[in-house]
Write a protein that binds this DNA or RNA. Structure first.
Lengths: 334, 334
DNA sequence: TTGAAAGCGATACCAT
DNA sequence: ATGGTATCGCTTTCAA
């Protein structure tokens, strides 16, 4: 046998005393094969430390063996997307597929000839040309978060239910005595922001409250959020609770509020629509909605495999739950 | 030709009226080929939108076409590592190699049979079994940050010069009137923390100052940093400047200091040994050392390609510079 | 149930 | 300078 190199399927076959095709069948489970034969092949493989050569497998199967991952261009939520990425990678690892991270600012042009069996798109936005291009492109797409209405339909979607978490959060605010909640939200368009805005507006109306919504600019999040918080607290001192969209801005708002003499968790409740380590370990820990990003990533990859293998016509869907973490920033009791 | 499928090298050759091998040479530039012929082949390829099939290339060349990326298990600095990752990915993209992110908590066991042409290890620590295993393993390794003395030597290293930035920072503190600096540092072992600690100690001694160094535990960074800051400021009110290692802890220390009546950028200067968006856009923007993580990632990948292609015996080295961003948290002038 | 053999697409050696 | 062809490791059809 092949001494210097990694063992090949032929080496395994030789050692098991069968032909290459039989050995192959033993692994893929395709052809019918005697249980004992299969056993022997597997044992031989184990003894040799055999690993299938992915390049050869892919060549033969006509696959690339890679799934591309497209993240949004959002410098704010890096930690969140890193978690999603690790989820995708973990799940891919087990399945022997490699993950090709796409450069976040890649042009639709450079993605035209993307070599991948599929692409996972996180938080697709109609304003992201690369994302739209990928959705229109030839290879199957799975979205983490549904695309907004009007966008091209992907082969698979992991739907995230933000509404119930927002409702739970507002109910919690209400229970803590808050009467006038506000939402500070960046002016980006994706399912997450729209869902939160809608859920917020709906809850407010159904409780006879006029929703207070402040939009901030994504180009200078920090500064425009600070200004929004300032406006909010100065001009409307009945505001007793605030929801913000990211961890960085949550801390910014908390600081601003404190500067105005407000007490977080006292006369002002604060919560973030996405969780992070920073929020959990802040001076006053901040209540947040935990998106379980790693699990979301895993789900996307699982769905991708289902899509690629089944090739079913109708789009396939999975659901992902988020949950509320109540902390000191919204608890008057403490 | 091959209508339904992607064009192959044969299609290009046919269209250019040459043989497959000639067409191949036109791309790889290996054999000697007439300029005109080469031209024609390239044009034909362009017209057909030909892209080499990576699986076939890899199979033939005996490569995997993938480079693995090992990040440290540090939940604190996710944003930083995401940047490094994108740098690696960008550079890889251009070279047609795919990046296999390793699950951060993967066991050395599961990495034994890693399929990759090389592995990039960021911030290798002697305490990270997976990192050590990879360094000892068969495939060439490139480290982003040198491994500590005593660790197995990688094929390539991107050396980061922390010392000069730390010196610059302490000189700056000094110029702003600070006389008694402290360093709060987590108890992890890697080149970055050791370099900063050493540079700090050295600078202090060479300026006739007793270095004040507080170690914090990585298992509960936030809380142990807060305690450290508290101890520092309560028991030693001559401390007039603090360096911390991460962005999250910088904000924590700043909060704690304010709670004790200190003014950041006034009677207490604060700086972080690594930069982040959060620091730049904090209420009081925090002075920090910018590691240019994306560029570091790019460098690692470039070095990896050099290593894989040259197979030179002696370890090869690249240098990466970091720079100081002075902000309000350390500027008395403002 | 198993084996022989064709072929996936690209590379590189050996002729010409 | 260019073309023919064996080869990389694996999957899968077809025969036995």
């Amino acid at each position: 046998m092949n001494t210097s190199q990694a063992p090949t399927l032929q080496d395994v076959a030789d050692r098991a005393g069968v032909s290459r095709s039989t050995a192959s069948f033993a692994f893929t489970g395709r052809g019918r094969i005697a249980a004992g034969t299969r056993e022997r092949v597997l044992r031989a493989a184990g003894e040799l430390g055999y690993r299938a050569n992915p390049a050869a497998q892919n060549l033969r199967r006509g696959w690339t063996g890679a799934v591309a991952l497209k993240l949004p261009v959002n410098t704010e939520a890096m930690a969140y997307y890193m978690e999603v990425t690790f989820g995708v990678v973990e799940e891919a690892h087990g399945a022997g597929v490699s993950v090709t991270l796409l450069p976040p600012d890649s042009s639709p042009e450079s993605l035209r000839h993307l070599q991948a069996d599929g692409v996972i798109i996180i938080d697709p936005s109609p304003d992201d040309d690369a994302a739209v291009g990928l959705l229109n492109g030839g290879i199957p797409a799975v979205c983490g978060e549904a695309p907004l209405p009007g966008m091209p339909e992907p082969a698979g979607v992991v739907v995230v239910d933000h509404r119930s978490a927002v409702v739970e959060l507002l109910d919690h605010f209400s229970k803590e005595g808050a009467r006038r909640p506000a939402l500070i939200c960046p002016d980006i368009r994706n399912n997450w922001t729209e869902s939160v805005r809608n859920a917020f507006a709906l809850w407010c109306r159904s409780h006879g409250i006029e929703p207070v919504l402040l939009m901030t600019s994504m180009s200078d999040v920090a500064e425009s959020t600070r200004r929004a918080a300032q406006n909010l607290l100065v001009h409307d001192d009945e505001i007793d609770s605030v929801i913000v969209m990211s961890d960085g801005t949550a801390l910014g708002v908390a600081n601003e509020a404190r500067a105005q003499g407000r007490v977080i968790g006292g006369d002002l409740l604060v919560a973030a629509a996405v969780d992070s380590l920073l929020l959990a370990s802040a001076g006053t820990p901040v209540t947040a909605i935990d998106h379980a990003p790693r699990e979301l990533g895993r789900r996307c990859m699982r769905l991708m495999r289902a899509v690629v293998e089944n090739r079913s016509e109708s789009p396939v869907t999975d659901r992902h739950a988020v949950s509320l973490h109540v902390r000191a920033s919204s608890s008057r009791s403490s």
